[in-house]
């Protein structure tokens, strides 16, 4: 399912939850794992110094320091590293989001794993999206491959996922997200919930949606579900379709809780200019911050193996016709 995974880490305990998932995934799929850390720099320009993530002190950036940090990362993740065959530890200096995307492009990875918070005291806080995990947002928007965001301890490992929720919004990016959701569910053998929330928050002042109007839109959404997604699924019937109405991120979270979801998969819009089309764009960020389970953000098709082609590692262990 995955050949190459990029785990972007702050190399601090805030990323431990994400680390567990990243290393587990690499083990499970025998994927190459790139453990990658970007030094923040204390200025907008180039800098001879970096801020050490653990001590918060200023360090001179040179080969010695780089080697020392890599060594530290190696010992931090030594226990997790066992059983991972192709792990590579790397670090660089620069703007974190840009460097993570650059690395993902360079190594041609098919999944990025990262935490949502950069600071430990942010955990659990209901921060607004300007503040929380701005690196995560930028990466999720710019990435060509799915981005798995882990902000809470994930106790079920990736292959134990039982209930996957796919939050649909009928855009091109959403089709990519669907493909990923479908393949993951099929591969793992878990239940897939296709979910859409009619957005009522957009109602203008003084205008409330009549029941008839809402029902009409629900019918339309179900038709779209059928046309866009259900028709794509072959030999897979372990799914359910639901359409609710309300504020999308709230509805998705409610739905996920009700279904005991352990993975949410959504589209994240990069360059959709028309905001109406990109309904879920900011919703992903809201969901990530509040979700109890990991969230995968997908915005493009090109790194998702297409159709019913046997999934890479699966072909060896499972029966694929």
């Amino acid at each position: 399912m995955f050949n190459s995974i990029l785990f972007a880490t702050t190399a601090s305990p805030t990323c431990d939850d994400a680390a567990k998932v990243a290393f587990d995934l690499a083990k499970k799929y025998n994927a190459a794992l790139h453990v990658f850390h970007v030094f923040g720099i204390p200025t907008r320009g180039a800098s001879p110094f970096v801020t050490d993530v653990r001590t918060g002190e200023q360090e001179t950036l040179d080969d010695d320091y780089m080697a020392w940090v890599k060594e530290e990362m190696k010992s931090t993740y030594a226990a997790r590293m066992e059983g991972v065959n192709k792990a590579q530890i790397d670090c660089t200096v620069g703007a974190p989001a840009t460097e993570i995307l650059r690395k993902a492009w360079k190594e041609d990875v098919d999944l990025i794993v990262m935490g949502a918070h950069t600071r430990q005291d942010d955990v659990g806080a209901y921060r607004y999206r300007q503040i929380a995990g701005s690196t995560m947002q930028r990466v999720a928007r710019g990435s060509r491959c799915p981005v798995l965001i882990v902000s809470r301890p994930c106790n079920t490992c990736f292959w134990y996922f039982n209930n996957i929720v796919f939050g649909a919004d009928f855009t091109k990016a959403s089709t990519a997200a669907f493909k990923f959701a479908y393949q993951t569910a099929k591969h793992i053998g878990s239940k897939l919930y296709l979910f859409h929330a009619i957005d009522l928050s957009e109602m203008r002042f003084g205008q409330t949606a009549g029941q008839e109007d809402i029902e009409q839109r629900i019918t339309e959404a179900r038709r779209q579900m059928e046309e866009r997604y259900l028709s794509q699924m072959k030999e897979f019937d372990n799914f359910d379709v639901e359409v609710w109405e309300g504020i999308p991120h709230v509805e998705i979270l409610k739905f996920a809780r009700e279904k005991n979801a352990d993975l949410i998969i959504m589209a994240h819009h990069t360059r959709e200019v028309d905001p109406e089309k990109a309904l879920l764009g900011s919703t992903v960020e809201q969901v990530v911050l509040r979700s109890a389970c990991p969230v995968v953000s997908v915005n493009r098709l090109d790194k998702i193996q297409s159709g019913d082609v046997p999934l890479v590692q699966a072909s060896k262990t499972e029966t694929v016709p």
Partner: peptide, 10 residues
């Protein structure tokens, strides 16, 4: 200028 490839590749 160099900050473009370095920080603002977009």
């Amino acid at each position: 200028i160099a900050p473009e490839p370095k920080f603002q590749a977009g």
